Computed example of a mutant assay.
Amino acid sequence: MDLRMHEELAEVWDDFQADDDLWVAVLSGAGTRSFSVGQDLKEAARRNSEGTAGPATFGSRGKPGWPRLTERFDLAKPVVAKVRGFAMGGGFELALACDIIIASEDAVFALPEARLGLVAGAGGVFRLSRQLPWKTAMGYLLTGRSMDAQRAYELGLVNEVVAADDLDACTDQWVADILRCAPLSVRAVKEAATASAHLPLETAFAMRYPWEERRMHSRDAVEGPRAFAEKRAPEWEGR
């Protein structure tokens, strides 16, 4: 991922976030070799030699493409990562920023930044240490070791692992299941789960969540029970 790609991706995420007709996103790599192998290190080396890069650290504020997916903390719409092949460095960080990860059997995940004199600054340090037991996360962060898809599944980082030929169909099924749910409910659930993850339970109950405020007063909140009582599929409007 070079700077131009970050700028182009930011436009995509802006469109997705703003368009009420888009309820879920799927992020995948092109081809079969990799989901993403992360930062374009050749570009970084060139910019370092030119003196135009500046020091690299956590986050991308002030850099092209900000806020990147890894820092769109207010994105309430669900994002599914469809991972084939390598998800390394920034590529793994993108997947960690998604809500659901579906991986093919040949997927490989790693945060090798420490081997390169870097840190996993796009959230890898923070998200991996939250999504895995502490010592397990430290084992991967401090060594740069990789994990295969099955190991990622065993650790709870991946929702499902399938044969490469079944990856598209499996991802489509997850998307279909999400779309069966009311979009405002999905966004309220994601927002509340994210915002309250590190709060005491009593505090989490007492908080107010903007998307939940919208859901509880929406037409869809009435449509769901009505459709159930009438024994028909609900017709969600997203409002």
Rank of each mutant, 00 (worst) to 15 (best):
C170R: 12
E43L: 07
S146I: 08
E43M: 01
R145I: 07
L3G: 09
K77E: 11
S196A: 15
D165M: 11
Q17L: 11
D172S: 04
D177K: 15
G62H: 10
G65D: 11
A56Q: 03
G65M: 10
R187M: 13
A44T: 07
R46W: 10
T70Y: 05
A81T: 01
G89R: 06
G156H: 08
V80W: 00
S28Q: 13
K190E: 11
H198A: 15
C181V: 09
Y209H: 07
D177G: 12
R47N: 12
T70N: 13
A176K: 13
G54S: 08
R215V: 14
E8P: 09
R208Y: 07
A195W: 05
D40P: 08
A53H: 03
A95Y: 00
R46A: 14
V189Y: 10
I100Q: 02
D166Y: 08
Q39G: 05
R68T: 02
V186M: 00
L9S: 02
P200I: 05
E237R: 11
A221H: 04
K82R: 11
V26I: 06
A76R: 05
G124V: 01
A182L: 09
K63I: 11
L22M: 07
A95K: 00
P200C: 07
G139A: 03
A25E: 09
D166G: 12
